[in-house]
Design a protein around this nucleic acid. Structure first.
Lengths: 202, 202, 202, 202
DNA sequence: CATGAATGAGTATTCATTCAT
DNA sequence: CATGAATGAATACTCATTCAT
């Protein structure tokens, strides 16, 4: 990668990062391209060399940020000894919840987009290649623990949607209860889902 | 209610209705106040007598539309003979899913707002009084079937969040599968949730 | 004056008073008719029964407030023993300066309108009849002290304009100096003016 | 100064000039930003690149126009042989009065803002640097004629305020008399002021 | 007389986008 | 590639005024 190439990559990253800061500070609608380039120390025209428009930027950002979350979860579990498939799922869920509790701005931004969408876009976009690694890991761990599951996608989808939506409500609004209080119920529901749709072989 | 009073109520309803049409036709962001008042046949200033701004209108509309959905579900089940609490829950869920399948514009609009928030705001706003009737009905039916449930709120919350988010993905994007295909799994998960958190007395 | 008549007079006064409060609080341009009638506890339409528009109200108010200031000055001197015409003039000037120092909101409002205009409008409007009393008093005192002055109007005009404009700058902005510091100079100038344009008879 | 720089300066001047025309034609309140940019042949957005809002423009304009008036007076006297400090002051006063008589629109616009304020803001703003030249000239001429004056600021302030306010009334409304008629009195008062507060050395 | 809901022309202001430098 | 001045359509919102009740 030449100096020019590196320079461009850097500007792109700066714009994404700056935009994320502003989106979480003032919200997407109230953030203007001017705000972004001003803080990034770039010219307005430069923005359009990297993104089609504000929506393009946002979409890239959601995918990027959600992907990173899965990557971190994946890294975290890679360094731990966790026994059994269900415990691995619960570990990942807990990890993500912790991350979102620590970073409410992130939760607000990815909002209800922490959903199956991240995998859905996998084919269109190389950015989510990291998310794919998580998906591969999920399938692999099932196999490793001799779990038989006819529809692994549906199980993962159900869990992700459930975690995503309840995080939003419990962490940001503590409604109907705080996430601390809700967590045991969430674990129990995940347990039930896995029990219903997967069978340990033999 | 005097003539004037009735007139005001009517204008409010007209604005809500017209705005809903436009939001579902062109989307919230692309709908202007001018669009709304033009189609409603009212003056611009009149809009501001009823709503603070476009966002205020949208929020009222989401609550209104979601409330109506629960009201319709409530009415529907009132006219049917459905045995047992779980079956009643499934009936309501199916009813709502059917409504959203028939009216994708509605689904797009209430988007991921079909959530616990509608009940949460109950105390602040009389609009959702209808939703409260549904909530009361839910508790009453539990009692009637001698269901013991320590945390009925959490159970309802979990189910609503799950249904809300999966509807969005399955109905609008058929991801990871269509709603027809997903429905049996959804039923099964609901069954598991009820099994785990409620006990038929004796 | 019948009850109805009294009622009307009262509403008029309320509107003037309320408007004055708001003009001094938020400024003329930022005060709306709505603001005025809301605080006055009257209906919007009622405003138009008493005033042509906001400008009409303002003009009446300036005349009213400036007139009152002269009336108070007049009353103040009526109760005191002050010897000689020049001393009387200085007493009135000092009185007005003191009043404006105590009530900067009033000074800001009548702004640079503390000027000959108040007498000029005398013929058009009965409201300033009080100001006329002051003018009559001024002429009378001259005669009483056997002062000969070919152009009493011009002398009074010069003094009023000078006092009005310097008050504005010295009291509100302390520019170039505070009113305390400026006062001796002002007295001296007034003395010079009287010395130049009036002659004690014999 | 590059082409771009020159271009910007030119646009700024065009906007100021056009705005002044409109303000004097239709008044400040009735002149809209649209009016200004339309006549200036610029886009609306361009206005906001140069001025915060209409009030900002007006304030800059008042300072600009008042400053120019002093500059012209300064230039005029520079070309003349006028003997003695008092005669110089009277020349300047007469010059300004003549200018305002010829350009009543200008008088209406700067209204009662022909005051000490123009010097007060001098330190904050480079626009009035020209006014400063006049002020320096005033002090210099005093020195040259060996005039001793403890408070030259107060003397100048008094004269400016007096001239400003009386011009407004006499020129625009001919109240209480026309400026022609008032002028001898004004000269006399200025003479008295100088006599009272300055002493020719020796 | 009093009301206040309705009006809608009018206005300031924003901001994504372009393009000459 | 990068810039940032210029654009101007688009839009939210205000508020003096009217008039049916």
């Amino acid at each position: 990668m030449g100096k020019l190439e590196r320079n461009k990559k850097e500007k792109n990253t700066t714009l994404l990062q700056t935009a994320f800061e502003l989106f979480t500070e003032k919200g997407f609608a109230k953030t203007t391209i001017s705000d972004i380039v001003n803080r990034a120390g770039l010219a307005k025209g430069t923005f359009y060399l990297y993104f089609k428009d504000k929506y393009d930027l946002r979409d890239q950002l959601i995918i990027h940020k959600t992907g990173q979350l899965f990557v971190r979860a994946h890294h975290a579990i890679a360094g731990k000894e966790v026994n059994g498939f269900e415990n691995k799922m619960l570990f990942v869920v807990d990890f993500i919840i912790e991350e979102l509790k620590k970073d409410k701005a992130l939760l607000t931004f990815i909002s209800k987009n922490l959903s199956w969408g991240i995998f859905k876009h996998a084919f269109e976009n190389t950015v989510t290649e990291e998310s794919q690694q998580f998906y591969a890991y999920y399938l692999e761990q099932m196999k490793k623990d001799h779990i038989v599951c006819k529809e692994p996608d549906i199980v993962l989808f159900t869990i992700i949607e459930l975690v995503g939506s309840t995080c939003y409500s419990c962490i940001l609004y503590e409604e109907p209860v705080s996430m601390e209080e809700y967590l045991p119920y969430l674990h129990q529901v995940i347990h039930q889902i896995l029990a219903a749709f997967t069978n340990p072989e033999n």
